[in-house]
């Protein structure tokens, strides 16, 4: 696309998009931010409680798996996620 055509195309396209908003609903700008219905698909997310372990000054008596010899069999929900018709598989991991 040559330069002037590009400029015209972009400007026209943006003007059309902006105009559609102006006519559809004269929302204040701050309401536009994050307005899920406008664009894309908004996914309902986790809440802030999952904000991470962070740094702690405590120790733990939970035991680490290190030293246990075990094999991981397919587990978790990956087995129900369909990948091109195949069930998700984890390979055995040697401890």
């Amino acid at each position: 696309m040559n330069r002037s055509t590009l400029t015209l195309t972009l400007a026209g396209s943006l003007a059309t998009a902006l105009a559609s908003v102006a006519f559809a609903a004269p929302l204040p700008a701050e309401k536009m931010v994050g307005n899920e219905k406008c664009y894309g698909i908004a996914l309902k997310g986790q809440n802030d409680c999952a904000a991470g372990a962070g740094t702690t000054c405590a120790g733990t008596s939970t035991m680490d798996y290190q030293g246990n010899s075990w094999k991981a069999v397919p587990a978790g929900t990956c087995t129900s996620m369909n990948v091109d018709g195949h069930k998700g598989m984890l390979e055995p991991m040697k401890g």
Partner: peptide
């Protein structure tokens, strides 16, 4: 939390749990 060491002596852990 409380456990024992290799000699069976009391071993306390500062676990905050």
């Amino acid at each position: 939390d409380e456990t024992v060491d290799d000699a069976g002596d009391r071993l306390l852990i500062d676990a905050h749990g």
